[in-house]
Design a protein around this nucleic acid. Structure first.
Lengths: 143, 143
DNA sequence: TATGATATTGATATTAATAATCAATATTAA
DNA sequence: TTAATATTGATTATTAATATCAATATCATA
């Protein structure tokens, strides 16, 4: 994945919507794009505070939402836990194996499942837009 | 599905855990078992208040959680919306098509997807315990 | 470059869902 | 019948997400 390209996508989206550029916006974008997977607003806020102690939680939250809107990020909500965000641009859609013991997210993808899901929707006269498949269990470290 | 049988499962679970029987517990159980699919705590509370105006929200909430524990009910959380509960005992596992416009839940099941999911987990050295597949889009009425 | 319209920020308040608390009461085993 | 304790229902606390708002920053245009 090309970070420059991803940044352009977002900055163009911002401009197209008549929104503005800001120092914080760029810092949050950079930090997110070089972050690990499945990060919470808190995680990202903590990383950012090291470089810019004045940056606010609300600003990080708002900009993560905006990144989701732009197609750059994806939100994952599990139960009543804090939302987590992962990079989406240039990544293929994938599902998650979620370990009930250590909480680890493992990304997986199966073409056949993807195809069968579309067929399943179609068979029910349903137009699928997106889906979410999560398999809960024990990862190899915890089993 | 046999309601008597389902009731027994729950009442035995309650006894086995050293918990007690109560009028409210039984009323909530009965109301849940004769309720429609995908009901919220509020929905069930409102139904129950008609028969017993004194029954409290917290009691309904607690007992729905207990029914989940006993294997009788299943909780469905979508985003930050209110949790919904559906009957699980005697029902086959199924997935959901969720309409983004009208909010309808359509229950679906595909054996091939079920099998492929298990294989996918296995291939990742992961022991699956349960899964959740939700396909979001537009139902036939809304498309 | 200066200006003015307005988007952004950061602190805080609000909302909403869920779960915890607790005194009064109900249940149950002995 | 009694004693131990689980349950109830009203209320409060907790948590995460989002809205609010005054101060400030951005940026198109004069």
């Amino acid at each position: 994945m090309n970070i420059i390209e991803a940044k352009d996508i977002f900055l163009n989206y911002v401009k197209k919507k008549g929104l503005r550029h800001s120092r914080q916006r760029e810092q949050i974008l950079d930090a997110f794009l070089s972050s690990d997977k499945h990060i919470t607003v808190d995680d990202l806020h903590n990383i950012l505070k090291k470089k810019n102690p004045d940056i606010g939680y609300a600003t990080v939250h708002r900009n993560l939402k905006l990144m989701c809107e732009s197609g750059l990020a994806d939100e994952i909500k599990v139960g009543n836990k804090k939302a987590r965000y992962e990079q989406k641009y240039g990544q293929e859609h994938h599902d998650h194996l979620i370990c009930l013991k250590c909480g680890r997210f493992i990304e997986v993808r199966d073409e056949r499942i993807e195809r069968l899901q579309d067929k399943l929707a179609e068979a029910n006269n349903f137009i699928p837009q997106r889906h979410r498949l999560e398999i809960y269990g024990l990862c190899k470290k915890c089993k």
